[in-house]
Design a protein around this nucleic acid. Structure first.
Length: 524
RNA sequence: GCCCCUGUAGUUCAACGGAUAGAACAAGAGACUCCUAAACUCUGGAUCCAGGUUCAAUUCCUGGUAGGGGCACCA
């Protein structure tokens, strides 16, 4: 990795820690392939530092006002990278920064009261892709789905009431059919919790199928809330909290002392802010005397901690925003030493177009996938930061043409496959890479070597939208190369060299698309 | 009232405190005898407001303002 090398050199020249050294790629090529502001940061003479930065990987090192140091990579270095990529193949971009750390990504975890909606889709694709990226960065990943199916859960009880014909909450044609199928089993039940549980299992089966077959997301693990009750994990944590004096009784209910584990909001970055109040974990007798969602969720997180995860990422919908601080406080209370990152995905809406939707109507994710296809759906969701509320442009995503960035990227891959089909033994005898000298060839290589850097950055800050953007950039570089340089020509040596380059490009494109769960077609 | 997220081009979104704020779609112009034109080239167009910190602020801080979400003994 070029960036890694440069950071090492700077470290040697300045004695700074690698974390403090910023090496970035300037948007303007005249500012070099990479640049650093280290001299400005240290308030030192950039020329002085630049003099110490000597390496064969550079063609030149320049100092620019007001104190940047710009690096221009040498052709020889770039040409060599192609070889490296070909050698690594699918493993190109695989890093070790995760150090095999036991990590859990929990996502979707939708309430089993009906089919997934377009909001769930965001957490689904983001979570799956983030897990892919972290895996690529060297973390040991478990993908987990949590099912809120407890009989004591109010939503399950309400669902049960609907099943028993005592209410209409969540009712729609889908649910009606499910209830009809269960009629014989439900008939004798009096308790809403029992009926709701049964119905939730049925819904859950469908959702699981949908996720595996239509969304193509595979979970390693599923945890049921009801199961936590059955295994007495909820009781246990409650007794433990009681023994530690973390709970108290007030107005007939039991409260947990989250307030004292909160930190004044202004002292912490927004994501870590904790609540400054206490919350009910066991309802008063007047309210039924049952545990609240918070208590079972504490039990659930205790279970995660006990399973030895050193890094836990929870991806929740916007409606759970108020829950973040509570669980953060609980993690402190339970003295969890690993990283607990809770990510909130903001609301998803459909862009106003030809499709009109009645106000307040929930749009099914299945409808969207059927409408635009899985590749486009995944890509469009991933393009946007989790923090912004997004408008899904159905019309643009549906467009199976140059207008859609998904097809633009896939087309680059297809073009490569097209060229390779014309050659007898495309993968053998890759030689003469030193003939790659055209600006478009070198530009393409510069894009290729960014891939591991993109993985590293994204594994650190979870800004997954970087991946689709990178894929677009890479495709653009390839299309430019395709315009300027003919791969198959009379010059056999040059053809061999260019075949190597497009094979490397194919590898990286495929890797990038794989991360997003978007297919890389050979023909379009 | 309190808490969280977001205000960037006509639209949907990017930008690790850095240099001339990037893409895509839309608008306008060009270009094709040649490995798939689903490609390529060019043009116009933007940081909500007011302060502050900094050599440097779209980014950080304070105060406004606009939109969304959350403030349950729901999950």
């Amino acid at each position: 990795m070029a960036r890694e090398e440069i950071i090492k050199l700077i470290q040697k020249a300045t004695g700074e820690k690698p974390e403090k050294i910023k090496v970035e790629q300037p948007g303007d090529v005249s500012h070099g392939d990479y640049s650093t502001n280290i001299a400005l940061q240290l308030k030192k003479d950039p020329t002085e530092i630049a003099r110490k930065l000597k390496s064969g990987i550079f063609e030149k090192v320049e100092v620019a006002e007001p104190g940047f140091i710009n690096f221009f990579l040498s052709k020889e270095f770039l040409q060599k990278q192609v070889e490296g990529i070909l050698k690594q193949g699918e493993k190109f971009g695989q890093l070790k920064i995760g150090k095999n750390k036991k990590t859990q990504v929990e996502f979707i975890s939708a309430n089993p009261t009906g089919p997934l909606h377009i909001g769930n889709g965001r957490g689904a694709f983001f979570g799956d892709t983030l897990a892919n990226i972290l895996e690529k960065a060297g973390y040991k990943i478990t993908r987990e789905y949590y099912i809120n199916d407890a009989k004591a859960n109010t939503q399950i009880k309400t669902l049960g009431q609907t099943a028993l014909g005592r209410g209409t909450t969540y009712l729609n044609s889908y649910l009606q059919e499910k209830i009809l199928n269960l009629k014989s089993k439900i008939l004798n039940l009096r308790d809403g919790g029992e009926a709701g549980y049964l119905l939730a299992q049925e819904i859950q089966k469908d959702t699981k199928d949908f996720i595996e077959n239509k969304l193509k997301i595979k979970f390693n693990s599923r945890v049921s809330e009801e199961d936590l009750y059955k295994k007495n994990k909820v009781d246990k944590i409650y007794n433990w909290l009681k023994s530690k004096n973390f709970v108290y009784q007030k107005e007939g209910a039991w409260w947990i002392k989250t307030a004292q584990f909160g930190t004044p909001p202004t002292l912490l970055p927004p994501a870590s802010r904790a609540p400054t109040q206490d919350w009910v974990i066991i309802r008063s007798q007047a309210e039924g005397g049952e545990p609240t969602y918070l208590l079972s969720d504490i039990a659930y997180h205790k279970d995660k901690f006990d399973r030895g995860f050193k890094k836990i990422i929870d991806i929740w919908g916007a409606d759970h925003q108020g829950h973040v601080g509570k669980i953060k406080a609980v993690a402190k209370m339970l003295n969890y030493k690993g990283d607990l990152d809770i990510l909130i995905s903001q609301v998803v809406r459909l862009k106003k177009g030809k499709i009109s939707k009645r106000k307040g109507e929930v749009v099914a994710l299945e409808w969207l996938i059927d409408e635009v296809g899985l590749d486009a759906a995944r890509f469009f969701y991933l393009m946007k930061s989790l923090d912004t509320q997004m408008e899904f442009d159905v019309e643009l995503a549906k467009e199976k043409s140059e207008k859609s960035p998904v097809y633009y990227i896939q087309y680059a891959h297809t073009r490569i496959c097209g060229i390779l089909r014309k050659v007898k033994h495309p993968t053998s005898n890759i030689k003469h890479l030193t003939l790659l000298n055209h600006p478009s060839e070198l530009g393409l290589i510069k894009q290729l070597i960014r891939f591991p850097e993109i993985i590293e950055d994204t594994a650190k800050d979870y800004q997954v939208q970087r991946i689709p953007q990178y894929a677009i950039d890479l495709a653009t570089s390839f299309h430019q190369f395709y315009r300027d340089c003919r791969v198959i020509s009379d010059d056999e040596n040059l053809s061999r060299a260019r075949l190597g380059l497009i094979l490397a490009t194919q590898t990286v494109l495929k890797n990038a698309l794989n991360l997003m769960g978007v297919s890389a077609p050979e023909k379009m």
